[in-house]
Nucleic acid binder design. Structure first.
Lengths: 103, 103
DNA sequence: CTCGTATATGTGAATAAACGAATATGCGAA
DNA sequence: TTCGCATATTCGTTTATTCACATATACGAG
């Protein structure tokens, strides 16, 4: 099952970046144009576009063109569930470390 | 929230590798010694140890020493839930691509 | 202590990811 | 067509990641 696991990992890899995580959470609030993401995340437009491309290639996000605007939206809402689980785990870990230090 | 997102991403990064995904699923079946993982995943011992170190640093796995043996186990079972969600998403994506080609 | 097994790590090479800056494309308006 | 805005891509560089190989450490047996 090496092959399936590689595919699995490629999806995980695609969400393993702080900018892309922020994009996904923003899109979870509502579909956004590239511009909105740029101002919301305060990153250069080229950076946002590059990260969007990676998400597009993994088919995690969908695009919809209207004139010169491109609106991005989540292709699979449950990617947010996965991210939320990870975030809660990380929170537990950080809390545990904190408790150990202040015990 | 840049900082929190970075932590979030570091956890995602830790599971974004095929070998580490295989290790996590193996540990989900039962706690394993390094040796068992080596034979089960058919990777060099140094490789396995390296990946275990990454998982350890992120506190995703726990270790228990008995003599010269070290048994690894999952620190947070719900990491598997997150992985399962991603796997199901990837499956959907692959199926959709397949359907498009053979339509 | 010495030996053998189990596990961990250092090092260097190969590969991949990320970024900034510049440039290119796509599209509507005039 | 030309201009200007929205978005995408290329290039060169820097930084991370991964691996194989060798070596190091930790521990129990004897």
């Amino acid at each position: 099952m090496r092959e399936a696991t590689d595919l699995h990992a490629s999806l995980c890899q695609a969400i393993a970046d702080p900018t892309r995580i922020s994009i996904l959470y923003a899109l979870n609030e509502k579909p956004c144009r590239v511009n909105e993401l740029v101002t919301q995340l305060q990153s250069p437009q080229a950076t946002i576009s590059r990260h969007l491309k990676i998400l597009r290639e993994q088919a995690i996000v969908e695009t919809h063109r209207e004139g010169s605007f491109v609106t991005y939206s989540l292709g699979y809402q449950r990617i947010i569930q996965a991210l939320d689980i990870m975030r809660s785990i990380k929170l537990d870990i950080v809390r545990k470390e904190h408790d150990l230090i202040h015990e």
